[in-house]
Design a protein around this nucleic acid. Sequence first.
DNA 1: ATTCATAATGTGCTCGTGAACACTATTTTA
DNA 2: TAAAATAGTGTTCACGAGCACATTATGAAT
Lengths: 348, 348
Amino acid sequence: MKTKRYTLKDIAELAHVSRGTVDRVVHGRGKVSKEAYSRVKQVLDKIDYQPNLVAQSLRKGVLHEIAVLMPGYNYEKYWKKPLLGVEKATNEYTPIGINIRTFLFNPSDSGSYREKYTKILNGRFSAVLVAPFFYKESLVFFEACKKSGLPYFTFNTYIENSGAVTHVGQDLVRSGRTAGSLMHKVLADGDEYLVVHINEELENSMHMQDKESGFRQFLAEAGVAPGQIHVLNIDISEKLEPPLLQKLGEVDALKGIYVTNSKVWMIAGILQQHELDRLLIGYDLLDENIQYLNAGKIDYLIFQNPQLQTSLGIQTIIDYLLFKQEIPDKTFFPVEIVIRENLKEFIT
Amino acid sequence: MKTKRYTLKDIAELAHVSRGTVDRVVHGRGKVSKEAYSRVKQVLDKIDYQPNLVAQSLRKGVLHEIAVLMPGYNYEKYWKKPLLGVEKATNEYTPIGINIRTFLFNPSDSGSYREKYTKILNGRFSAVLVAPFFYKESLVFFEACKKSGLPYFTFNTYIENSGAVTHVGQDLVRSGRTAGSLMHKVLADGDEYLVVHINEELENSMHMQDKESGFRQFLAEAGVAPGQIHVLNIDISEKLEPPLLQKLGEVDALKGIYVTNSKVWMIAGILQQHELDRLLIGYDLLDENIQYLNAGKIDYLIFQNPQLQTSLGIQTIIDYLLFKQEIPDKTFFPVEIVIRENLKEFIT
DNA sequence: ATTCATAATGTGCTCGTGAACACTATTTTA
DNA sequence: TAAAATAGTGTTCACGAGCACATTATGAAT
């Protein structure tokens, strides 16, 4: 465990050359004779040289610059938490020579996305963490990254075969299964289930499909007939109330409602207004949702820990850059179940 | 945001003195004239000097040594995870000049505890993170720490008025409430509840009391009569089976069982053997528990994330030592609810 | 006024790395 | 063969803080 750390000077002595030569070998700068090279190489292979990061950092001023590309929270408040995660990581890593630059784009304007990623490509970054919000534009961006040898890491939105070193996010199918299981534990045998998708133009509808399929998957395994599961697609621009009330009127045994995104508070509001009592499950710790959770109108919230997405993402990048660690191509983090009783520690 | 970092040299120039004088003022080493002192002080006040940690670390070889005092996992496998947390933190912080030394004691031998903490007191540590397993011995240790000015941080076991800078742990009352709520959501109105304490000599029984009181607290608020809640105290050296079966035979409506520690798998085994079906809630992701969770015999596990206890503890210490941050006197982390469906990400 | 003590201040080296630079040895070109 | 080019190697400085040591200034004592 207590392996001595070798310095360039140590190696130089062992290989009977000067520090400069060792440096040239280590960094492959050339201008080294075959004999000197092989002697240094031999020593290097034997001792597993790890450069002193502290000294590197002191010398270079800044070891790495990392870019983060994500939507600004003034457009969508969901993004406030991920930004907090970035700030946390920034505070932690700045003193050791890692600079983090944040590029916020407008999530309803792909032009602003392009503009920001161009800046990143023109900067001199060691890596980039990106929420690939726009599909087509992201593919272009990824190609450009590859061309300039810039490693990219994605979070929040998963893109198949993106070529990213790692994706950090939540397993959506699993989160749907979790919702199904939670609901199934509480509901009785004959009760029926409702899945509500509340669409926004912005949000990726793939997300919701994955969640629904996980939900159905679990219930099927638990012996719930497909006919007991109802689905409601509502666009946010329409009124939510009429279709919901209609459905609840039609199906009397409908005892559980699963809302596949953070807009669950809207449903909670309608239920409260009409004094209806249903088991209600949704996503994310928005203020509105927390309020209804505390009031007992929402039973379970599934939490993506958006803050963790970015802080974990940045940490992964640093592991990659500094320690050349083996990085898994997907880093999932837990599907957290939040009820009123364990809420507190999640929101501080 | 983009505040320039001042160096000692910068300050020296601003105050028209030499680097050495600034150094003496910053460290209060004396040998400075009143005029020079006040000039430097003035500059210092204005610019908020933050010493360059990288340079400090390089110069001093190691910035801080932190001691961790906890039980070894060869005695109790529960402690394997906290140790992993220590290792994770070690890997992360060693390259920036923070050394972490672990002292493992035998949790059934207070002598070994004393022996290890003596070593720590004789070493030159900047801080210590301790699982204060033995109450009386810990008070002695804390006194000694105070005397020698060694800041101490506790985790896992909470000691009232310990004088620790921070305690890192889980809110036990809240975890009891959570168990109560989960169970109450599923059980019907007339159903009855059972709390099982499985004692080990080693474990602090305070823990279990806090959990039970949280459990009762919640159920009382939810309108469950105290008479509907039964308690079973079993010593691990006895046979668990007879008292449990007797209780279940006596009370027919007993539909939910809450085990206040990680020994829940023992109860699950008995239920399985006798083909009994009850809602079962317990603690921690031991292999045995996971097995029963997957088999559907355990419904919910409450998870303390033991790994997080130590890694968060060490991080807190570093914030304290390096950044002199305001540290809350208690750092709680979430009461995680684990079911079969969201298990996976918690165990990797 | 000169010597000595001491307070106050400045200088220089160290930590390990990176990079510019200087130097030597060998080969190429006129 | 002398001059020039180039390959190979070693030396030196800088990064910022900390600390030992050298230097200077100030006052006291003879």
